[in-house]
Write a protein that binds this DNA or RNA. Structure first.
Length: 349
DNA sequence: ATGCATGAGAA
DNA sequence: TCTCATGCATA
């Protein structure tokens, strides 16, 4: 990849920018996918029960993944790593409190059958068949067992609260987080849910950020310096996703004012610095990341194509079949659904 | 830049 | 249990 480390101490002053929280809007997104009709194919061992979607999924999978390419490597299932690193993410020195939550409302929309991107596949690994309704052995052999250690890491979340926005939509959430406040910020009436704006802002943001010589990680950390109520730091991942518009619409809308505030403050600070020529001079357990091999991934995608929201039983069956932990499969589906909901050029474009 | 994961809150 | 926002770990 590339290393971009232009760490530079940046001191920002708290800026008091009036937070304006954006309401959400329904993100209209259209996700369409094509389900090909393809009956045929069977010869299951468990025949009898199966049938249903999963089976078809496999058939589809076989067809779907016509000629694709795949990666040559086949990593083991999971690997853990333990290391001690004093991650000081952003936990600020004292405060233990700052966990507001971001909650953005969400509008829900109609989903469509999913849509997934072409993946890699090569040899047609025909899946077997599962019995949908019944859960074999009660629990798929793998089951969630103990995914071993999940170290609860400090939860720090930044918060973004939104309030109203009357719409037929449903949710609105705030997180109580003890501190009695419910930020009653100015009822926001704010921003434009205009995807156009977001897109151009994200682009400008990235460019100005680079101009400042700041990395995505720097931005995330610096956010904590802007003492915007309810806003802590964010990770490099999130900044990156913001810039590449790979966040949900609501999330983009919520983050925009915050990043905008940071940008202005950062540029202001730099101007100031430029002005005066004299200054400066210049442990823990790590979470493990399961790696799902290409063949398994192809199967999952095939199932997802026909049934984005499998029941617990089906998930268990799939997990057993692919020899993955049930929880891994469940999470995979969740993430897949989230992906399909992301912005980028999904619908409005 | 992304894959897999966690957790809070809403169903 | 799912959705959503987010993050760690990793390619």
């Amino acid at each position: 990849m590339m290393s971009m480390n232009s760490k530079q101490p940046f001191s920002m002053h708290p800026i008091l920018h009036e937070p304006k929280y954006t309401p959400l809007h329904s993100s209209s997104e259209a996700i369409r996918r094509a389900c090909l009709p393809t009956p045929s194919l069977q010869g299951n061992i468990f025949a009898g029960f199966d049938e249903t979607l999963l089976q078809r999924a496999e058939a589809l999978a076989a067809v779907d993944i016509v000629a694709q390419k795949s990666h040559p490597f086949k990593p083991d299932a999971t690997y853990h790593t333990m290391t001690t690193m004093t991650s000081m993410t952003c936990t600020p020195t004292s405060s233990s409190a700052h966990l507001h939550h971001p909650s953005v409302l969400s509008s829900h929309h109609h989903h469509h059958p999913a849509h997934h991107q072409p993946s890699q596949g090569l040899e047609g690994d025909l899946l077997d068949h599962l019995t949908p309704g019944i859960s074999l052995g009660g629990m798929a052999g793998s089951d969630v067992c103990s995914s071993a250690s999940h170290t609860a890491h400090a939860a720090h979340m930044s918060a973004i609260n939104h309030m109203q926005h009357h719409h037929h939509s449903q949710s609105m959430n705030m997180h109580p987080h003890g501190l009695g406040s419910h930020s009653s910020l100015g009822t926001g009436l704010d921003s434009e849910p205009d995807p156009r704006e977001l897109e151009s802002f994200a682009e400008r943001f990235k460019q100005r950020r680079i101009k400042l010589g700041v990395t995505q990680a720097d931005v995330g950390a610096a956010l904590a310096n802007l003492k915007i109520p309810g806003v802590g730091c964010l990770s490099q991942s999130t900044i990156c996703r913001f810039e590449s518009l790979t966040l949900s619409h609501n999330n983009m809308v919520a983050l925009k004012p915050i990043l905008e505030a940071w940008l202005e403050e950062a540029e202001r600070a730099q101007r100031e610095k430029m002005a005066k020529p004299e200054i400066f001079n210049g442990g823990d357990k790590k979470r493990k990341r399961t790696s799902i091999a290409a063949p398994e991934k192809r199967s999952l995608e095939a199932y997802f194509a026909v049934q984005p929201r499998p029941s617990s039983e089906k998930i268990a069956a799939i997990a057993e079949k692919l020899d993955l932990k049930k929880n891994v499969v469940r999470v995979w589906f969740c993430n897949q659904r989230q992906k399909q909901k992301r912005m980028k050029f999904s619908a409005t474009h």
